[in-house]
């Protein structure tokens, strides 16, 4: 089987910091790989190595069969990159940025202009097309950046936290764009801190922490593998939340996830019998719940179990420890 992106044993050191500590990745053509990990895990470093911007100290990586170190030009010819930090020219307008890229990629001036207009329209930037990017809002910049990475119709697209800082509408737009590209056969590697994003888009997920892959598989596999199941409680009265959290903590020994917006507490459990204990304890305490049940754990639970940390934010809802 040939992979669109394949890496083995990638090591990258910055002085004493080991940013990548033997990372393996494999993405089949036309699939979306979600790379998850907390701040400083090495996600951006991995993307930069795969995009030929950084040279790994050890290991190798191939994109569509081309080695990123020795066949960098061929790799650059088929990839598109939206880095974590905007990589459009602030002094130029949206149109000028995209036309410049088109021309560098060998398009005629007319073709470059047509492609720029098409992409700006797609990302709802037509009204701002002739303004300096300097005047764009954070979300507009992000979209301009995405548009820039698509000018060359890449076969392999890297998106480093593409929706960080976007409002829900723009985020949905980006998700729709990614799905559209995947339908066209594009392979996508996407890093994110948003578990929901990975859940929505990714066919495969790799969780990185401290430069090491700590889990890899389909979202389903990961949810199955970690903690078995997730026990969820939806209090009838929000004021009962702390009391319920205490009961769950006593029974499981770990701090449950409290999602205030959704009015939901959840905790990974490996013993399904715990459910009856929870019901009994709530009964004794005189607390009623609208919903108590066992589910496949969410990726939030997976992440919590794997790294011992919650993710800083989730897009639609704010998850925080009680």
């Amino acid at each position: 089987m040939s992979y669109a992106i394949e890496a083995e044993g990638l090591v990258k050191r910055f002085g004493d910091t080991v940013a990548l500590d033997g990372v393996n990745l494999a993405v089949p053509p036309g699939k979306v790989l979600g790379v998850l990990g907390p701040n400083g895990a090495g996600k951006t470093t991995a993307v930069r190595v795969l995009a030929t911007l950084l040279r790994a100290d050890e290991g190798w990586a191939r994109v569509a069969g081309y080695d990123v170190a020795t066949q960098a030009t061929a790799v650059r010819g088929i990839i598109g990159l939206t880095g974590q930090y905007a990589s459009v020219d602030e002094d130029l307008s949206g149109t000028e940025n995209l036309v410049l890229i088109g021309k560098l990629l060998g398009l005629s001036k007319a073709d470059a202009k047509a492609r720029a207009a098409e992409l700006l329209a797609k990302f709802e930037l037509t009204d701002a097309a002739s303004r300096s990017v300097k005047t764009y809002s954070g979300g507009m910049r992000r979209r301009a950046d995405l548009a820039a990475s698509l000018v060359g119709r890449p076969q392999v697209l890297y998106l480093d936290e593409p929706t960080t800082g976007l409002d829900p509408h723009s985020r949905n737009e980006v998700w729709a764009t990614v799905r559209g590209l995947v339908d066209d056969g594009v392979t996508v590697l996407l890093t994110t801190q948003y578990l929901e994003e990975a859940d929505q888009l990714a066919d495969l997920i790799t969780v990185i922490d401290h430069g090491k892959v700590i889990a890899a598989g389909t979202p389903y596999e990961l949810k199955r593998r970690t903690g078995g199941q997730s026990l969820q409680v939806r209090p009838t009265v929000a004021a009962d939340t702390p009391a319920i959290a205490t009961i769950l903590r006593e029974l499981t020994g770990i701090e449950p996830l409290v999602n205030t917006d959704a009015g939901l507490l959840s905790t990974p459990v490996d013993n399904p019998l715990l459910l009856s204990s929870v019901v009994r304890r709530l009964d004794e305490a005189g607390i009623t719940a609208d919903e108590i049940g066992l589910r496949l754990p969410s990726l939030d639970d997976v992440f919590l179990t794997l790294t011992g940390r919650t993710t800083p934010t989730t897009p639609v809802t704010e998850g925080s420890l009680a």
Partner: peptide, 8 residues
């Protein structure tokens, strides 16, 4: 970074 990720 963008220039460097392009085949130029």
């Amino acid at each position: 970074d963008r220039f460097r990720s392009m085949p130029i």
